[in-house]
């Protein structure tokens, strides 16, 4: 199992050492995502009924793939430095 990122860190420092340093706790979303995953089979069954009756195909298939892609972002980081300015975005 791939663990999704627990924190998104965004740090922007300007030339006068002023800036923002955000630690966004993504782990707060984990329970919501867990509930959504539990409900996924029910929603999938409902969507197949919708497809049978209306011909409309909900794009539910993207769910697991997007979740995998989100979980795979753990460890990704982008850091840019120029003189005294510094920008950092990282999934921890």
């Amino acid at each position: 199992m791939i663990w999704p990122p627990s924190i998104l860190r965004i740090r922007v420092v300007g030339e006068e050492k002023k800036g923002v340093n955000l630690w966004i706790p993504l782990f707060i979303l984990w329970p919501l995502i867990f509930v959504a995953a539990m409900l996924f089979p029910v929603v999938a069954r409902l969507s197949s009924k919708v497809r049978e009756e209306t011909g409309f195909v909900p794009s539910l298939a993207a769910g697991p793939y997007l979740w995998t892609a989100f979980a795979a972002t753990r460890g990704m980081r982008v850091e840019v430095r120029a003189d005294d300015a510094h920008v950092f975005v990282g999934f921890l």
Binding site: I2, T68, A69, A71, A72, G75, M76, E79, V80, D83
Partner: peptide, 15 residues
């Protein structure tokens, strides 16, 4: 003194 450092997990490539 300008640097760009990007680290992309290989898992993201697989995904």
């Amino acid at each position: 003194n300008e640097t760009v450092d990007v680290r992309v997990p290989m898992q993201l490539l697989r995904a």
